[in-house]
Simulated scan of single mutants.
Amino acid sequence: MAFTLATWNINSVRLREELVLRFLREEGPDILCLQECKSPVDLIPRDQFTALGYPHMVARGQKGYNGVAILSKLPLTEAGAEDHADLGHARHIAGRLDNGVTIHNFYVPAGGDIPDRDVNEKFGQKLDYLSAMRDAFHADAPAKSILVGDLNIAPRPDDVWDHKKLLKVVSHTPQEVEAMAQTQDAGKWVDVTRADIPDGTLYSWWSYRSPDWDAADKGRRLDHVWATPDIANAAHGSRVLRHVRGWEKPSDHAPVLATFDL
Rank of each mutant, 00 (worst) to 15 (best):
D223P: 03
S251R: 10
M180A: 10
A154Y: 08
P198T: 01
H243Y: 11
A143S: 13
A195H: 06
R245V: 01
L222P: 09
D191I: 04
S171D: 11
T193V: 14
H236W: 10
S204K: 13
P250M: 14
V244R: 09
D223E: 03
L202W: 08
V240C: 13
H236T: 14
S210Y: 10
V190P: 10
W247G: 15
P157N: 12
Q182I: 01
G237E: 04
H224E: 01
Q175C: 06
S145V: 06
S204W: 12
A234F: 00
I153Q: 04
Q182P: 00
D214H: 12
A181K: 10
A258F: 06
P255N: 12
R220G: 00
S238V: 09
R156F: 10
I197G: 06
D230K: 14
D217S: 15
R194Y: 11
D199P: 07
L147F: 15
T183A: 15
K218M: 07
Q184L: 09
E178D: 13
A234Q: 15
E176N: 13
D159Q: 11
V192W: 00
V160M: 08
D199A: 12
P211T: 09
P255K: 09
T201P: 02
W189I: 06
D191P: 02
S251P: 04
D214T: 08
W213L: 07
A154I: 11
W161A: 08
N152R: 03
I153Y: 08
S145T: 14
V190L: 07
N152I: 09
W205K: 03
V240S: 09
L167W: 01
L257M: 15
T228N: 12
G246L: 11
V148K: 14
R209T: 05
G149N: 15
K249G: 04
P174V: 04
D191V: 01
V177C: 13
R220V: 00
A186P: 14
G149V: 09
G237V: 06
E248Y: 09
A234H: 04
D217R: 07
W213I: 04
A186T: 10
G200I: 02
K249I: 07
N152E: 06
D185M: 08
P211C: 09
G237R: 02
Y208N: 01
D212S: 02
A154S: 05
R194W: 04
A215W: 04
K168Y: 02
V244C: 14
D230T: 12
I231R: 15
V190D: 03
Q182C: 09
E248R: 05
D185F: 00
K218E: 00
H243E: 15
K188V: 02
D261K: 13
I146L: 05
D223Q: 11
K164W: 03
V240M: 11
T183V: 04
T259W: 06
V170H: 06
K249R: 15
R209F: 04
V177E: 11
R221M: 03
R245A: 08
K165P: 02
V225M: 07
S251L: 12
T173S: 07
L241P: 15
K249T: 10
P229M: 14
D162V: 00
P229A: 12
K218T: 00
Y203M: 04
P174K: 06
I197F: 05
A235G: 10
N152H: 06
G149S: 14
